[in-house]
């Protein structure tokens, strides 16, 4: 059984992630203990809510060095929603806040677009930036245009196009709906709330983690 540590930093509804990992055959542990996190085969950084509060809580529970240590050991880590945004350098949500800086780029409010509402609460489509980008990724058998569930007002803008794993249309623009740099992954949507398609993404993550260990 593949153990996935879900980092518990007092933010968001973790139960759905626990349930979905069980549904795809993994063993989730909800923890903020460094030994638990570093001994798990994969890590999920969950989170909903405000960026500043998310970073403050990671600091409060002294989780930042543990996340860096896990990344240094090339453990697969998946940030979900706010968890993805925290991977970036900085955010403009309620002032200016520094993030983990694992991926270059910043987090900004979605631009106001005709026919779209803020917050963006909806199922919306994912497209690969290039036709080969999804091979061997968490989207390996997903069809371009697949729908996932989003609930957010801010989005990440990576500096390097190569870090973008998928893009999602919003009015006349696209935003980055998932990132990958090596073993560091993030998705703005909620795979644990995106029906069978979302579970497939989590199953692929668990499979990638299993194959790496």
């Amino acid at each position: 059984m593949t153990t996935i540590a879900i980092i518990d930093y007092g933010i968001g509804n973790i139960q759905s992630i626990v349930n979905s990992l069980i549904a795809v055959g993994a063993t989730p542990i909800v923890t903020r203990d460094s030994a638990d996190i570093l001994s798990a085969q994969g890590i999920i950084l969950p989170g909903v809510g405000a960026f500043g509060e998310g970073m403050a809580n990671l600091r409060k529970y002294q989780l930042i060095p543990i996340i860096f240590e896990a990344v240094r050991k090339e453990k697969s880590i998946l940030g979900i929603c706010l968890g993805m945004q925290l991977l970036f350098q900085e955010s403009e949500e309620f002032g200016h806040h520094l993030g983990l800086g694992l991926i270059e780029g910043c987090v900004k409010k979605l631009p106001s677009q005709p026919g779209e509402k803020l917050p963006h609460v909806s199922w919306n489509q994912l497209y690969p930036p290039t036709s080969e980008r999804w091979a061997h990724s968490i989207f390996q058998e997903s069809v371009p245009g697949i729908d996932m569930y989003f609930v957010h007002s801010f989005a990440a803008y990576p500096h390097h196009k190569a870090d973008i794993l998928s893009e999602t249309p919003y009015g006349d623009t696209f935003f980055c709906s998932s990132v990958q740099r090596g073993t560091i992954l993030g998705c703005q949507f909620h795979p644990e709330k995106s029906g069978p398609a979302g579970l497939t993404v989590l199953r692929n993550f668990v499979q990638i983690v299993t194959l790496r260990n």
């Binding site: 509804n13 139960q15 759905s16 349930n19 979905s20 069980i22 549904a23 569930y149 609930v151 909620h190 644990e192 709330k193 995106s194 029906g195 069978p196 979302g198 579970l199």
Partner: peptide, 28 residues
Amino acid sequence: AREVFVPITLGGGIRLVDDIEAALHSGA
């Protein structure tokens, strides 16, 4: 929440911050 992997919303009888916390903890 163990078998339904789309968003779940709960309404009715929510009065306190503790009620919301209990709802989210249940999987809403």
